[in-house]
Computed example of a mutant assay.
Amino acid sequence: MKKVGITGQAGFVGNHLYTTLTLDETVELVPFERDFFDDQSALESFVKQCDTIVHLAAMNRHEDMNVIYNTNLGLVEALITACKTTSSTPHIIFSSSSQEDRDNLYGKSKKEGKEKFVSWASETGGKFTSLTIPNVFGPFGKPNYNSVVATFCYKVARGEEPTIIQDGEVGLIYVNELVAVFIETIKNQVKSESIGENSSEVRIQPTSKNRVSRILELLNQYKSDYMGNGIFPSLENQFEKALFNTFRCYVPEAHYPVKFTKHTDPRGSFVEIARTQTSGQFSFSTTVPGITRGNHFHTRKAERFAVISGKALIQLRKIGTDKVIDYYLDGNEPAYVDMPIWYTHNIKNIGDEELITLFWINEPYNPEDADTYFEDV
């Protein structure tokens, strides 16, 4: 059992890495709190417990660039001091940036922080790996902070008009892909180049390159087709699937439940559940009163629950949080709720009659790669 601690585990990348590692039975996570860097004894206790420390804590934005520079170097120095004081020699994995070669104080803080860790590893026999990371995007990024994708997703989903300042080509990596590299590094399965005694680096390349205008074009299409008409886009292209899953996590809670258009004539009723530009699996279930189905989450699948008969309570909770979202649906007004990735979800029959629910998911079920993890809402 490898003991792994993540500084900055509450941040964008840190949260994704932490929640993914909770699914790995070979890893024991050592909890980290923001105030550990203000409490020397707490920081020392943290480093003593860790076989591996992923150092993600950093300041990315501030009006005064000197504050960014001093803060980031201060965090590195505090971590090194705690290791030296406790004679701890964990494998430290450092989140560097593609800006480290640029002439700005943020990039300089990353470059000099890396150099300090290299010296520490050489002096103490600890192990150090630097990961040079390109621009990252994915669910739950902070708009106007983490990435242009986060900002655009937030604004487009709310009907706002984003501004393109410079329509250049942007190299991006999806956060799931980045997390996979971190995990390979934790498990010593990544290819790296030596940069000193006991030190190495991995220069991670973008997995996609797109003009800013193309990204905005896709997001506006998702707004029109998906939010406006319930149409799922093609999910064959890996970047577009990642962008779509990211966009879905910015759809306001108030958007759901979405009511269907119900066509009725003497023969009965017809309701179109979903139009899709991708493959997938449609299914339905009947549920007796009082029974709950589900209580699981997915990390990549797009899924829709549609209630067409009976009364249901659909509940969602983002993994790692306590907030439960409740949606009440009634088959007299057929409606659906879509399940964001990393949200555990269930559906309960709260009526007196049989509940009929239709389901759509973008991947046919594969028991060898189910992407289904059970956790109660």
Rank of each mutant, 00 (worst) to 15 (best):
K323P: 03
S122T: 13
L355E: 05
G230E: 05
E354H: 02
Y343D: 01
D38E: 15
Y327V: 00
I341V: 14
P162Y: 06
T287A: 01
R214K: 13
N135R: 11
F297S: 02
T151A: 05
L17G: 05
F117V: 07
G280I: 02
N362L: 01
H16S: 11
K187V: 01
N70D: 15
Q221D: 14
H55C: 09
N15H: 12
K142T: 13
G74V: 10
Y222R: 13
N198D: 07
G113C: 03
P257L: 06
S96K: 06
G351T: 11
V170C: 07
T81K: 15
I308V: 15
P252H: 04
E63Q: 11
T261M: 04
I173V: 14
P134I: 06
I204V: 12
D225Q: 15
E272L: 09
I361Y: 03
V181A: 13
I53E: 09
D167H: 07
R214L: 08
F270K: 13
N332D: 11
T344E: 07
D39F: 03
T357P: 02
A58E: 08
P340Q: 01
S208D: 09
S95W: 04
F284C: 06
S45Q: 14
A42L: 10
S234H: 04
Y328K: 06
K84P: 02
K3P: 07
A121Q: 11
N146D: 15
Y174Q: 10
D64P: 08
I183V: 13
D103Y: 07
I319H: 00
N144F: 12
L216Q: 09
T292L: 00
R304L: 07
H16G: 02
I204E: 08
E368T: 14
V54P: 03
